[in-house]
Design a protein around this nucleic acid. Sequence first.
DNA 1: TTGTAAGCGTTATCAG
DNA 2: CTGATAACGCTTACAA
Lengths: 329, 329
Amino acid sequence: MTIRISDVAARAAVSTATVSHVINNTRKVTEETKEKVWQAIQELGYSPNVSARNLKTGRTRMIGLIIPDISNLFFAMVARQIENILGKQDYNLIIMNSDENLSKEISHIQHITSGLVDGLIIASAAQDYAQLDNHIPANFPCVFFDRRLIGNPHESVLVSSDVAMQQGVSALLSRGHKRIGYIAGLQGISTTEDRLQSFKNALQNLDAEFDPRLVQYGNSIDSTTFASIGALIKEKCTAIVVSNNLMSAQAVYKLASMGLKVGEDVDLLTYKDYEYYSYDLTQCDMIVQPINQLGGIIGNGILDRIQRDDVMAREIVLVSSFQPRLLNP
Amino acid sequence: MTIRISDVAARAAVSTATVSHVINNTRKVTEETKEKVWQAIQELGYSPNVSARNLKTGRTRMIGLIIPDISNLFFAMVARQIENILGKQDYNLIIMNSDENLSKEISHIQHITSGLVDGLIIASAAQDYAQLDNHIPANFPCVFFDRRLIGNPHESVLVSSDVAMQQGVSALLSRGHKRIGYIAGLQGISTTEDRLQSFKNALQNLDAEFDPRLVQYGNSIDSTTFASIGALIKEKCTAIVVSNNLMSAQAVYKLASMGLKVGEDVDLLTYKDYEYYSYDLTQCDMIVQPINQLGGIIGNGILDRIQRDDVMAREIVLVSSFQPRLLNP
DNA sequence: TTGTAAGCGTTATCAG
DNA sequence: CTGATAACGCTTACAA
């Protein structure tokens, strides 16, 4: 039923070796035989069996990407950018969801690291590398990103918003805001802690006081942001920092429905993780994530690790940029 | 370097057959030997080579999903739901982006249908099945969704908003709107045409007139929606239908920035493709896509096609529902 | 209840 | 420049 390389060889009246070499351009073949082989391939509609090739070569030209949530635009955008980079060298990306669930993540890791992919890119749900150690084969090419893991021996690409946060908070303070609220993301993720820490640092550096009562924890899935905004307004905040992209739209909407104008009644400093979808383009100060740079570094990082074996693991920290609002109040 | 099944067999002092059967639970083995085998597996950190297994069995327990844009929340949500369904039967999903680009799509198809996956789910960028015919092996289990292709012999799952659109337009008309604008999506996609047609049908059925000057074509990537909204307001529209989820937020924002209140100055009927992210929860009438049902039917559809061979190809049309706004003006 | 060995479809090493 | 054939690591008849 299925067409094998030997069928092509028979039809072209050459050996399987020749067919293989023609397909992979891996040794000198006369134009004439090349022609015959390609024609046979066309006529039979032959396409090499991927599993057999992978088994033989030990390589798959596929990279696994494990992320907590494909429906979070941040991860989706990073995925696309990585795919762009890999595509240039004919590598393909396999995307898998971990659902922020460690055992699901581990099951994915085990599956794909045993011969399915040449390298692994992961935004892990683990807090400590020890939780993963047994499940990643030694020397397996890996790039971690977005989350910081304790004792992680692999390449790790993070984003710091320290500087951008300070610029943002500084802008808010200079406009006279005294009570600045903060809506934090999902607890237990390093990103959440890092961003809150950046906020605290910014306040401290700028001689303003941090008030824990003005911090609300939310998560981007439910509409808890609505309640958080309500609570912070009740606390008489005149400015609010919203610490992730998914909660921003909810914040904008909630304020509007309370009859409060962003940029007039309340100032907002939000995170922006993508290029388009610009409902909040002009009225909010924004901390912009370097998505393309991130994807680029991750993509090239994994290729380096696959293609060479003298590559050191580093922790690379990219920085967000501050993008002030366009409208003047 | 790498651990093979024979290493495990040696260590457990049994044959490779026994090891294989223990792992796959595929014939009777005494508890005692089972024990020995698992222990050896543990000690060596063995995990079966996926390519070898796939080559031997001819099955991979993987399904390919090809979509135009993973950063469109609609596709991301469908992907998650499909993954949920497949996970229950231990199938994994490989997600690939086609970028709305036919040749990229074909390259993905060729790659994964030659031994990488057991089945294919696709929202194709093609208009006619003839464009794909040569690249999909005969009898390969396939489920198409979201887009309608001419001459498609495979299972196809579509969503119609005919009924919901009529309810929505009816609501607008009953509130006295005479000039209803329409913002259409990317041209050349069946969804765009279908939705516009639903709009026309609704007007006709309700004895209202369709005015082509009140139709703007946009695309969700750029911020063309801003211009579209501006144009329609200039045309004195008092209500606007926004025909996809990505443009809705832009519409809401643009109106707000023009000082127009949704639900008071202008009524909006928008598409909603996901559960959360509810910036427009209360003020817009909405046409809600049956994401979970869609994912469910697709997921079960592909499993049926893989596991049985007497399954007919059908065209299944799901229906969107109408969700009226919660606020009364 | 367990073991032996053939074979899945490639690639790559020889030899010619 | 081309061909024959062993080997990749596993599953699965068939034998014991």
